[in-house]
Amino acid sequence: MTIRKIQEFQKIHYDLSLLADPNKDLIKDYTKRSVCFDLILNETIIGILILLPTRPETLEIVNVSVSKDYQGQGYGEELIQFALTHAKKNHYKTVEIGTGSTSFGQLYLYQKCGFRMISIDHDFFLRHYEEEIIEHKLILRDMVRLSINV
């Protein structure tokens, strides 16, 4: 397994990004301002991590995803731990992440990695996404924001 900086965004990177964020326009916007990494296993790109500096000393994980065939095997946690190490090495103090209030698996993973809930952005997904998102038979409305000090 290797995590490397992405030099040029390719179709596989967009495909992986869309697993975590169905808004192509948002992805195109934030990747321009971010540092991006991919996770390679046996010469196959299976994951992506996109980090965006948001405020002084704060880095946000704006996208982290793993190919469906490799989910549930610890690769998402590897990417998050890589992000925390990268943040510390680059003198960031805080790492933030946001996810859907109905994204139970992601909420579990982020808290398992030490993130704590800090706020709720009410109706975020209704404001920023044209199509309704359904998770676990629930309409996704709110973004839960989490952070960790590194």
Rank of each mutant, 00 (worst) to 15 (best):
R116L: 12
D123I: 08
I80M: 04
N42Y: 11
Q73A: 09
H122Q: 14
S101M: 07
R4A: 12
Y70D: 04
N42S: 14
P56F: 10
S147K: 15
K112M: 07
V66P: 01
K93Q: 14
F37V: 02
K112E: 05
I97Y: 04
Q106E: 13
E131L: 11
R141L: 03
Q73G: 00
P53L: 07
E78H: 11
C36M: 15
F82G: 06
F115R: 03
T99N: 00
N63K: 02
D38N: 15
R4D: 12
Q7I: 06
L59A: 04
S101I: 06
E78W: 06
E130K: 13
K5M: 13
L26N: 08
L84H: 06
S103F: 07
A87F: 03
Y129M: 09
E78T: 07
F82D: 06
Q7F: 08
L79E: 00
C36H: 01
H91C: 10
L107C: 09
Q106R: 01
V66G: 01
G105M: 02
P56G: 06
P56S: 11
T2H: 09
T99Q: 01
G74I: 10
D15S: 13
G105S: 11
V35N: 10
E78Q: 12
T54I: 13
S119V: 06
D21T: 04
F124Q: 02
I50E: 03
F37R: 00
E78Y: 08
K24F: 10
F37I: 01
F124K: 05
A87M: 06
P22W: 01
I80K: 01
K32A: 14
R55D: 12
K89P: 02
A20G: 15
D123S: 11
V66E: 01
R127Y: 11
Q73R: 14
Y70K: 05
L19D: 08
L26P: 00
S34P: 00
G72F: 14
Y92C: 01
